[in-house]
């Protein structure tokens, strides 16, 4: 009786999962086995391992890696300082608010700021460096991506730091540890789960960024995300687009497996 109601409650949930998670993935896998003329083939997978696509893959991973590392390097100290402030919830909110603004709007804002006559160049002019080409560079691409992703890195790290039992820090001091040792042996290991969550939510979406690559990087940065978009919208080679998507999905699962699941001391 109770089991029956439980199954009943599960139906919408399972339905949702099938419709919006399983079916799309199955479709992507299905399409990846057809060439541009609609004939069944495994050739797309072979094509992925040619230099063109491998270079794209490496470039995607490289930029995602840069974006994640820089976000992490900026987010950890920020989150740490936030836990020490008086009105920490308010500060946290201020950091999160920009993430509610549409991505496209933020991208356009940066085109304005980084443009030839934008605020950034005016500033460089004033301090005597002179105007520089900022837009359509690797730098601007990574900078804007970090700006967009950083709240998602700060949030889990902040929570982990905030949940740290303060008497543990007294205990490490009590046992003779310096500040650095306290950080390395206690604070960092105990907030590692927050760091891992942050890496997941930044690295995975960074892998398949495509809009920013055109708007901010001016197509100088070609990632797997750009390639998928091109195949679906321009060359109409859905098969190859799907194959790349399959590899992205596999990459996501690998990253999840590397950073997640095995939780100790939760």
């Amino acid at each position: 009786m109770e089991n029956k109601t439980r199954t009943l409650y599960m139906i919408p949930y399972i339905g949702w999962i099938i419709l919006f998670v399983v079916a799309p993935i199955a479709l992507v896998v299905y399409y990846s086995f057809f060439d541009i003329h609609g004939n069944f083939t495994v050739g797309n997978y072979g094509k992925f391992f040619t230099p063109v696509y491998l270079k794209m893959a490496i470039s995607s991973f490289w930029y995602a890696f840069l974006i994640t590392i820089i976000s992490l390097a900026a987010a950890y100290p920020t989150a740490y300082l936030l836990t020490k402030t008086k009105h920490k919830q308010l500060w946290l909110l201020l950091i999160i608010v920009p993430s509610w603004v549409n991505l496209l709007l933020k991208a356009y804002a940066f085109i304005g700021i980084f443009g030839a006559h934008g605020a950034a160049n005016q500033f460089l002019d004033i301090i005597g460096i002179g105007t520089k080409q900022l837009l359509f560079t690797d730098f601007s691409f990574v900078f804007v991506s970090v700006y967009i992703f950083i709240p998602f890195m700060i949030l889990p790290i902040f929570n982990a730091l905030d949940n740290l039992n303060p008497s543990l820090l007294d205990a490490t001091k009590d046992l003779g540890a310096s500040k650095w040792t306290t950080f390395r042996r206690v604070i960092l290991p105990l907030t590692l789960n927050g760091v891992k969550s942050g890496i997941q939510v930044v690295f995975i979406p960074s892998l398949s960024l495509f809009m920013l690559t055109r708007l901010i990087a001016g197509n100088r940065v070609i990632t797997l995300g750009t390639a998928i978009e091109q195949h679906f919208l321009v060359t109409q080679d859905w098969g190859m687009g799907s194959t790349i998507a399959v590899f992205l999905i596999i990459a996501m699962f690998l990253i999840m497996a590397l950073t997640g699941f095995r939780r100790r001391g939760a």
Partner: peptide, 20 residues
């Protein structure tokens, strides 16, 4: 003299053992 340089050790009320 900071805590990490003192010749005392504490047993904390909540034990404060390292969970990891």
């Amino acid at each position: 003299i900071p805590a990490n340089k003192r010749q005392v050790n504490t047993v904390f009320q909540d034990y404060a053992l390292f969970p990891h």
